[in-house]
Every structure is written in structure tokens, then in C-alpha cells.
């Protein structure tokens, strides 16, 4: 079963992600911000990371940059899931190495389809 790391500082949103992606056949782990994600990733290798942008300690941009700087995660798919929709922030995420951009509130079926597409 493919493992996904869901990174979001909202516990409710993490619960929603877990419910949606578990129902779609994925195993979901959670981290509450970018720093917590990196700590978990020290000992784990998921298939995909889904991350929010606005988070304390280390935001989504910082998390993507940290991942791309590490050989082990240079090619891991990273989907950004955010309420942000500004072209500037989307471009910044793309330049940092994000694989895709999904605007909240998400459609569970579209999210699962995007996950399948980038993890095939």
C-alpha cells in the first residue's frame, strides 16, 4: 500500500485528508508542520508528500526546499494543498520543486486521482 505523508497544521484538515485518502486505498501518516514532517522523514520514505503552505516553524515552501536539497527526496512527488490561489505563490511553489497545486476545499475524488497520477 502506498504511504502518503499529510502535512497540515490544522488537525481537522489532517483528519479530512486521512479519511479521504484512506478510503481511496492509501496509507496516511500525519505531521503538523514542515519541521515535524522532516523529523518523521528522517526515518521513513513515503511515496508522496501532501503539504499545506501556511504553517508555523517551517512552512510548505521551506519543506519543499528542504526535501529537494536531500538526495533521498529529490524526486519524491510533493503536492501542495492550500487555500492560497495567488499565481505568485503557485509559481514560487513550482520553482521550489512542487509537483502540483491543489486549492482547498478539495474534491476527494480529484485529490485521489491526482495522487494516483503522480505516484503511478
Amino acid at each position: 500500500m502506498k504511504q502518503i505523508l499529510a502535512v497540515d497544521d490544522s488537525m481537522s484538515m489532517r483528519m479530512l485528508l486521512r479519511a479521504s485518502l484512506t478510503a481511496a486505498g492509501f496509507k496516511v501518516e500525519e505531521a503538523e508542520d514542515g519541521r515535524a514532517a522532516l523529523e518523521w522523514l528522517d526515518n521513513n520514505s513515503p511515496t508522496l508528500v501532501i503539504t499545506d503552505i501556511n504553517m508555523p516553524r517551517l512552512d510548505g515552501f521551506g519543506l519543499i526546499a528542504e526535501l529537494r536539497a536531500r538526495d533521498r527526496f529529490r524526486d519524491i512527488p510533493v503536492l501542495v494543498l492550500t487555500t492560497e490561489s495567488s499565481p505568485e505563490k503557485k509559481a514560487r511553489a513550482r520553482e521550489a520543486g512542487a509537483t502540483g497545486w491543489i486549492v482547498k476545499p478539495f474534491d476527494p475524488e480529484k485529490l485521489a486521482a491526482a495522487v494516483r497520477r503522480v505516484t503511478h
Partner: peptide, 25 residues
């Protein structure tokens, strides 16, 4: 019903997230 575009915003799980994020940003 959650898949319908335009429906999701009417539900608390999304509306609360959007409001909190707007404050945080």
C-alpha cells in the same frame, strides 16, 4: 455531495479552515 463544485464551501470543515487560514496568512 462533497464532490459538487460550489457545495464544499458551505460546510464547516472547509469554512473553518478557510477562515483560520485567512487569519494566519
Amino acid at each position: 455531495r462533497g464532490e459538487d463544485r460550489g457545495e464544499a464551501e458551505r460546510y464547516g470543515i472547509y469554512a473553518m479552515e478557510v477562515l483560520v487560514n485567512a487569519m494566519l496568512t
